[in-house]
Structures are given as structure tokens and as C-alpha cells.
Design a protein around this nucleic acid. Sequence first.
RNA 1: CGGGAUGUAGUGUAACGGCUAACAUUCUCGCUUUGGGAGCGAGCGAUUCCGGGUUCGAAUCCCGGCAUCCCGACCA
Length: 413
Amino acid sequence: MKLSQLFTKTAKEAPADADSVNARLLTQAGFIQKQMAGVYNFLPLGLRVLNKIENIIREEMNAIGGQEMVMPALTQEESWQKTGRASLDILFHLQGQNDAKMVLNPTHEEVITPMMKRFIASYRDLPFAAYQFQVKFRNEARAKSGILRGREFPMKDLYSFHADEKDLDDYYEKVKAAYFKIYERVGLGEKTILTFASGGAFSKYSHEFQTFCEVGEDTIHLCEKCRVAVNADILQDQNSCPECGNKQLKPYKAVEVGNIFKLRTKFSEPFGLTYKDAKGQDHLVEMGCYGIGLSRLMGIIADIFNDDKGLMWPESVAPYKVHLIALENEPGVAKSAQKAYKELKERGIEVLFDDRPDVSAGEKFADADLIGLPIRVVVSKKTLQNKSVEIKGRHTDKMTLVGQDKLLKAIED
RNA sequence: CGGGAUGUAGUGUAACGGCUAACAUUCUCGCUUUGGGAGCGAGCGAUUCCGGGUUCGAAUCCCGGCAUCCCGACCA
């Protein structure tokens, strides 16, 4: 992508109403633009980050047998009455033709459970799991922290269906492992802790994945031996490590970046989702649900990986890998930079090319730091004197000159 | 939903109750510049959030609403 073509632009000054780090940097760099409180536009650079995150999650969901589908954002309110959740204050209600009552889904148990009655009849149909990436709507009393808690946000939700609790338990562990891989891959592995949280009516616990972060809404109590934690919400019931019994737990601020939950028959019951066993007896289907908010993940990554100059994306989720700069408006420089751009692209390396002819060197450097791609490549009069280009990582001040013909090799290492 | 703060060109800020609402930046045009947000000149850009009130006179004071941010409550 050529920066001269990109419709977004960076801002020198931070927006006055963006107090949170993620909102400030992502807005300044042109990744997102606020629409209203808790509702954001995801611009080309921001969408690329979301898509990177989405693809990582997709691969891990497919690896544990998840089948991708998409459910609607809109649902009849009746389904929510059946489960007793029509009165949730986070529900957006709206009215259709003939005064039909509908809601914008904040989650999809009320959609997928009745739908599966069409596809689950026998124990032979089980188990399986289905997931989607879909926008969720939650009328939060207070939107906050930039894109960490919005009223409309993209989410991955996986639902699993089982004949018995044992099978649900086994699959639950598989999802847990898949989640660890996801956090590892997006760069949050070391900072993300499995946390025991309220299990609701049918289970002792659910599990949250909590990422250490100062802006965190939650407090988790960490067992440093086991690297698991207990959410402060359930501390009165569980004041020691559930794995080793250790009572020396240390409190930390953290943000929930995922939640996995054994629903058991909480939803199959109101909708009558049953299957017949080998003897022809009916049983309620056992269910699990597993969510990850994509934009929250993006926000927390922005919140954690930055410095005073701007964002610092982990390579796995960076919108592009290379930020290529043609430093001066000079024919030789432009020509060499164009050539490098073409070669990188042909090699399948994602590159953002600052080809703007009328922008000062300082501004180009500042923009590169703000946008925060992992590798910066500069072509200038100076580098061309040595028939070379300059390479610098976003995390370091160290610059190295490599021959023009060695660029691809240097980038790939 | 309770409390607090704030609303002024696209963005960031200024303006004692009193002149044509100022400055920087962005943007447009011209010239000059090019290794860390360059320089000079000219220009565009505002119903001062909305509605009411006080006053000879309101961006400024008062009331109501709305919006945004922060704290709290809430939050599978």
C-alpha cells in the first residue's frame, strides 16, 4: 500500500476526548475513528489488524474442529423471553414491521440453541462445535477505555454441543489450550493468565483469560507457582489457588480477553434441545460457549505495546510488516524505493510505502514511529551513495545498512 | 444508573459580561527546502453543542436538555 493513496492521515495532536492510551494512539495513527461513545469506525490500517487477529483465531478454531458460520445480528425478542434474558439492561431493543419486537444480539445462545434443533436429533449427531465472527451489541451503562469496552464490537463466539458432561469437559480443555495458543500468537502470551471466575448456576467455575494491564477493569489474584489466578469477584468463595491450594495470592489489575464457559443445559432446556440416546431415550444437549472480543484484543495490544513515539505492533498482528520510506523527493531515491517496494511485494512481504513526494523527512519518520510497523526501511540519497538501504526495527535505535540486493534476505531473517 | 469535569474552525487551544471570536496546526495556491513533525508569502475554514432566561450588551452569568471523558455501581 502506498501512503500517498491511503485516505487516512495521522494527527500531530492527540484528540482531546481520548484519555485511554489505545484510543489516543489508534486515533492519532488513523487506525480507528470514534463515531460515538463506545462505537468506532475501523479504518484500513485498523481493519488489517482486526483481520490478522481474526485469522489467527480462525486457524486455532478450525484446528479444534470448529465449523465457521455466521448468525444474524438481529433476533426476535421472544427467544430472549424464553431464557429470561429479555430484561437484561445491556439489550438494545428495536421494533420491526407490525410492531415486531426484536433485539440486537449481545451474544448468540438465543440464536444457535433453537437453530440446532433442526440439526441435532440423535447421539450420532454429537459432538460438534460451531463458531462465528459477528458484531455484538451491548448497551453498556458506561462505555470506556477506548475500544476496550464498546457498545458495538466484533467478537468470535464458539459453541459446542455434547451428549454428556464428560465430553463437554474434554472439549473444554481443548478450547482452553487453543486459547493459550491464540494469546501466544498475538503477542500476549506471557501477560495472559488463566483465571477462575464465577461459573453461574450449573458449574463451579468459568475460566477467563486475563491480560495484565494497568487500565484493567478486573482485579485478579495470581498464584505465582501455578501461573493461574482467581478473579476478585469470587475471592470470598475461593481464596486460595484452585490448583495447588496456595493462599499467597497477589492482586493485579487485568483485562478480560476471553471467557470460556460450561453452559451445561442452561440453554438446551428452555429451547428443548434434546437428542435420543442408543435406547431411544431423550436427553438435554450439554453445551459450552467460548468468546474472544477482537477489538478488545486489538486495544489491549495497542495499550501494552507502545512508547512515547507511538505504536509498536507485534509482527503477527501488524497491519504491514515493513514501513518503506523514500526519504527525499529526488528521482534516484524514488526509483530505488519503487524498485524495493515492487520486490518486497512480489516476495509476499506486506509493505506500507511512504512515497509521498512533498513530505519532510522528519514527518515521515514521525509517522513511521506512530504507525508502529515492526521494520522500517529507508531509501535516501545517503543510502544510495553506498548502493544500500537502511533497516531499523521499531524496538531499537540500531540502524543497519544493507546492500540493495540484500534487502529481501535481511527482511526475511 | 449515581457523582464529577468538559463542550469555541477538521484538530489542539485562547478570549475581564463590551471592537469584526484570537493563535497554532491541518487544508488550498505560489516560491524555497529535504536524515527527526522545515521556511516565507497569500488564502479558505465558526450559527462558540441545542433551547430558554438575565442584561443596553452573553462564548462568558443562570435554568433545562444533549453529548463526550473520568470515578463508582453494573458486567457469562
